[in-house]
Design a binder for these strands. Structure first.
Lengths: 342, 342
DNA sequence: TGTTAGCAATCGCTTAGTGTGAGTGCTAAC
DNA sequence: GTTAGCACTCACACTAAGCGATTGCTAACA
């Protein structure tokens, strides 16, 4: 357990380092954070904190840089205290007052404002929790094609098209529809994936269009596959604003990693947190690029749709600001989603 | 008009500069491209080319760097001559032999292989040329909601959902559907945008559900709006591989520009070229980021769907390779689209 | 007239050397 | 436990020198 003074000094180092991106000296700490004791005292404390693994020196005549352990300590100590300027708060509000046209739009707008205000790369992940199938509709498009529509309790999945065989009557189509509904209503969309054509289930009357039935199942499978998580990112270029990633090699590493949406989804969703819970992962979490931190919060994006919003950036991230912005945006999203029900 | 030797020397400078990214000296040219005359002669020619605006020197004791004018000349002289290695050709073919699941998939796969093989940022733009409306369907989802489906001659537009008012009978819905079809069949999807509720058209019988009708039109408007151009990019991080953009400022400028999909679409589509035509724009075309070139070719992505595929990268781009890769990929796309009709 | 060898001149780049200043750790006194 | 004082370290900025690459020019030559 650290003494109060050690805590204070440690947080001062982290704060200063986040602010100035350069090693923090005993003198700086004394002048800005701890005028009541001398720099020599602080040097003693710094030395102790270094041997505890919280700090390190790039070279002997430099100040201290916080380790990842120090950052973890820092964010745990961080009392929540919004430090948004009124101008920033207003900018965020204004951004959302313009248009609210469905969840997709909200997602996009969140990434825009989040990355613009924080200067990090913003991420929004949308997850459909429990889409149970309410109905499957086959719709004759009267041009030789049929539309397969899956209706779920939360929304309609995208359509899929199929050619209708010539010898197919409306009556047969209605029967196919009944069969599909019998098989799948009440089940989760993911069950298409495990469905293995139990043709024994289908009575002889239908054997003639087994092939078509199989095609329909294929369409359904594809639909439910495409129905994975939705990931949107924005502000990738912001990484180059931060000195840690101002060189080509690490910037490329970062950008290439962020291009992989599956990885991003993994980084931003693993944590069984409930709505409003904030997760801070420091230092290459879940095979994220080297030296990265991820700050995310879970939000409710509508009935049965949950999501994560957050940023990914260097470990030397302005956590206070990011937390304040996320808090503000979450608040607005809750308001927007609530209002959408009207 | 340039003499043959001047042409040869100019192309040698451009070739060498593309290869080595450093100023090209008279000696290099003599040794690699023009052994039949002395470096002094080449120096005289270089001096002439410089005063003609094709070349410049970063400083007096350096070789020559081609200007954008030189690059334009170079690509015009470029005789098409595929210089793909067999290994590269095979890699491209293999990439597409795996899965072909619709145009979206093709688009994504094209960006992947194109950026991987060229080391530039790949772009695919899909444009729906003339989607005329074949039918509009209203589908009762039997949960108090209806699905509005627009069927066009090339495909089905995404669905839109609406609540059905309580006092709405199936009969009324069928009549609404008939009205919609009467109004819009044969027209282009964009016409929803200009449609201004000419309620005079609708006879008294329908006045009772004007509100719903208006809602449906709103859904249709939104659909056709969303039906703009589809832009996919990949390999943004590749820009950092090239020395021109290895510094944070210009890399960020580039990345921020590429994030703007509308701008990208503009860069890759303006040019009334027909299928197979290749466009090379050198040096910040259409407010692209400074010092950029865009190479694109138009492809047919199915009936009434055309598109552009290409790359965006530094002016010092390996045009020969890019052209070869684009040619190869176009060939494969033609094959894939053709086969899809089966 | 076009080509070429020779040569002085230019100038970026690398290397080495030097000085400065920031910051520490240690010691000894309080 | 705290602090002033001081020697020590070392990154960084600056300067100077030398090297090497490359050119333009001149004069000779085909």
């Amino acid at each position: 357990m650290l003494s109060d003074r050690k805590k204070k000094i440690l947080c001062a180092v982290v704060d200063g380092y986040i602010d100035r991106a350069s090693p923090i000296s005993s003198k700086e700490i004394q002048e800005e954070y701890l005028t009541e004791c001398s720099s020599a005292t602080i040097r003693n404390e710094l030395s102790a904190l270094e041997s505890m693994g919280y700090l390190f020196q790039p070279h002997v005549s430099a100040g201290r840089i916080p380790s990842e352990k120090a950052f973890r300590f820092y964010v745990n100590e961080l009392a929540y205290d919004s430090n948004l300027t009124p101008a920033e708060a207003e900018r965020i509000e204004k951004h959302f007052s313009r248009k609210i046209a469905g969840i997709e739009d909200v997602m996009t707008e969140v990434t825009r404002i989040l990355s613009d205000i924080t200067d990090y790369t913003a991420v929004v992940v949308k997850e459909d929790m429990s889409d149970t199938i309410t109905a499957i509709k086959l719709l004759d498009l009267s041009n030789g094609k049929m539309l397969v529509v899956i209706v779920t309790d939360s929304r309609v999945l995208k359509d899929g098209m199929l050619d209708i065989p010539d010898d197919f009557t409306p009556h047969m189509m209605a029967q196919a529809e009944r069969w599909l509904n019998k098989l799948f209503i009440g089940k989760h969309v993911s069950e298409f994936m495990n469905f293995n054509y139990p043709f024994a289930l289908i009575n002889d009357e239908f054997s003639q269009f087994n092939a078509l039935f199989k095609k329909i199942i294929d369409v359904l499978k594809k639909q439910s596959l495409m129905n994975g998580m939705d990931v949107e990112t924005y502000g990738e270029s912001n990484i180059l604003r931060h000195s840690e990633y101002a060189n080509a090699v690490s910037a490329r590493q970062f950008l290439a990693a962020v291009e992989n949406k599956d990885k991003i989804a993994e980084m931003f969703t693993y944590d069984g947190g409930e709505e409003g819970s904030v997760t801070i992962k420091i230092g290459a979490p879940d095979n994220a690029p080297e030296g990265c931190s991820v700050v995310s919060t879970r939000v409710n994006l509508g009935e049965n749709v949950s999501g994560s919003i957050g940023v990914i950036g260097p470990v030397r991230m302005n956590y206070k600001k990011v937390l304040s912005v996320l808090d503000k945006i979450s608040e607005i999203i809750i308001d927007l989603i609530g209002r959408q029900g009207d």
